[in-house]
Design a protein around this nucleic acid. Structure first.
Lengths: 378, 378
DNA sequence: CTGAAAGCGCTAACAC
DNA sequence: GTGTTAGCGCTTTCAG
């Protein structure tokens, strides 16, 4: 058996096996395409100057001919010749040279708390797709919910000269967000908002889905409904709490029982549910997040209570595995992928017409009833 | 109620409520702290030339003084002066200029099949941490398991001039991987291997954990053990199948019952388990992946079979939620984060000493028994 | 040990 | 409409 962490093979690439150390110096002079030297590593990519030469025009002209924003300012014939030359040589512009000149890198910093949290994967994916479609590249960074780490990575991304930022990691009083806004950096928040800053954002319209969920519970006869809220430094926790309170007030006419988890994790959910059960006898619980709901399942089981027979549970997010839990979890789904796409769209639009006022887009949520909710016990 | 996808508010945050539309234009000019010229866009970051001027030396000298690789080739006094000037001005080198000159971007392309798959999140995270520690930046791209999309994104990343690649998405006969190797691009595979290519890789030593799992099942008296394998285009499927077969041969002395899933998804697992149950009466099943195991749970339930009472189930990966399934899933855990870190380390090392021979590192796996396995029924 | 100068690949301001 | 020129910020020869 192979011992851990040890190199298993060291054979090396066959083609390069006996390459001398100075190979990389040679590369420079290999530039001419038909070099006789057999050490030729790779045919260096043609530059704009090459294209211009091939088309018999000046580099500046070639640049203009290839720039879609400048149609009409170059004669059709020249344009055609340049484009053909470019095509023939397989020219693809070097973003580095361009960026250095234009001060735009066509990259967007994407800052998220934790890739492992299933909420964010689809959001990131939406961002990625939208950005790539428009020739931009996401630069992803995780913060681990640490403000310090967030500050660090944003710093790195800024020196990398990202053209804009999408931030999903913001706490409600986030300093970095203020910095970015003050610096005039195009910025869009997703999912989590920040207090007192005028900045574009994409959120889910949680009230719709939560309203439907509570209505559903009320219709099943539930009167004592609890809420496991998220940590209050995060804006969505407050939003969902408010939506819950309103819905309960109007649908069952009472106040709900609230317990806040310290974090959006299974363990925190377990702790909060345990505390909730100790405080009051509820027949249904709405958790601000699916992970909290899973923790809730465990707390119930630990007390010998069954879900949904004894206590109905509703989550939030509709993460992939909720449909496969036992019992499958009734939850509120939010259009994460669309939220990501929209966030990307907003930054890019802001980049295009830099006078854009900030705007907030709210995408609808929908309640997904499954097996974790049933008629209230008499 | 808010209609989907429409801007809900344009007011901005309360604090700024009555800002007119041209606010963001104003913002632009607010940028300069005390400049007389109101059009001044932003206080531009100091350049190397600024530092040199402040230190009273030539830019070239300043560059050398700031380059740690050149210690000793610049007088201590000059070095100190330059460094102080840099410090004072808050100089931070522009990677763009540097890259254009040196042809190294300090970026690594990271290609993964699907961010939503919980296997990859920790791997990506390990990569990210290791790269950042060494001043590199990951450029992440998802492939959706599509070879075409993979080709596209790798193309984009290559024109972005990534210094190297980490690929977790490779099918066994992957074309792009061959291209990269042929082009001499530093490359490391993680988790999934590719046939017939001499390239560095980081994998898990699946045989250890799988051996322990089967041993455990054998000790519980299981004799008819099934295997839900993954799709055979992916190398890990073959590895795990082989490990399973060997372990069964040596521990229970027979051949296992094999059924291959078409994909590493819950649904494919359900289908495969159903087929397996139709073929043969097994008392235990080892699934090549946790998602397949979850699908297996459902197939069992659909047939009125209980886990583990009627059929024991073992998964692979130890993804976060497996501990919270019902029953909690016995599984094999692999050190994903470490695998990511190691992969990043390998590319960076290869970058540092470009003569590096390729090497394969196997990190150990460990069997994690939980509630989904029990004594075989008589 | 340091200054001078060239140039990475590209675009934009300025001529004509 | 196109050529010319300069320069983004940096490193690295080449001299001295």
């Amino acid at each position: 058996m192979v011992p851990p962490c040890r190199a298993v093979s060291r054979t090396g690439h066959p083609a390069l096996r006996s390459k001398p150390v100075w190979q990389s110096i040679v590369k420079r002079s290999e530039r001419c395409r038909s070099s006789p030297s057999p050490r030729l590593r790779r045919v260096d990519k043609p530059t704009l100057a090459d294209v211009a030469r091939a088309a018999g025009v000046h580099p500046g002209t070639a640049s203009r001919a290839l720039n879609p924003a400048l149609v009409g300012r170059i004669s059709p014939e020249t344009t055609a010749r340049v484009q053909q030359a470019a095509e023939r040589l397989g020219y693809v512009p070097d973003p580095l040279g361009r960026s250095l000149r234009t001060s735009r890198t066509h990259t967007i910093g994407v800052v998220i708390p934790d890739l492992g949290n299933p909420v964010f994967a689809p959001i990131v994916r939406g961002i990625e797709d939208q950005l790539r479609e428009r020739g931009f590249e996401p630069l992803l960074a995780s913060t681990d919910n640490s403000a310090e780490r967030e500050r660090d990575v944003v710093g790195v991304l800024r020196t990398r000269r990202c053209d804009g930022f999408i931030v999903a990691s913001a706490g409600r009083g986030e300093g970095v967000v203020h910095d970015l806004v003050d610096a005039g950096v195009p910025l869009v928040l997703v999912n989590r908002l920040v207090d007192g800053v005028d900045v574009s954002a994409v959120v889910s319209d949680d009230a719709v889905g939560i309203g439907a969920a509570i209505e559903h519970l009320a219709a099943l006869g539930h009167r004592r409904i609890g809420h496991i809220g998220g940590p209050l430094q995060i804006s969505v926790s407050a939003t969902r709490l408010a939506a819950f309170t309103n819905a309960v007030a109007s649908d069952v006419g009472g106040a709900g029982v609230i317990e806040h988890a310290t974090d959006y994790t299974i363990e925190a959910g377990r702790v909060a549910m345990t505390a909730l059960l100790a405080r009051e006898q509820v027949t249904a619980v709405f958790a601000a997040n699916d992970l909290l709901a899973v923790g809730g399942y465990e707390a119930l089981a630990a007390q010998g209570l069954r879900c949904p027979d004894d206590v109905s549970v509703v989550g939030f997010n509709n993460m992939e595995l909720t449909a496969h839990l036992n019992p499958s979890l009734s939850t509120v789904s939010m259009p994460q992928y669309e939220m990501g796409r929209t966030a990307a769209k907003l930054v890019l639009d802001r980049l295009a017409e830099s006078d854009g006022a900030s705007q907030t887009v709210a995408l609808p949520t929908v309640f997904v009833p499954r097996a974790s909710t049933c008629q209230a016990r008499a």
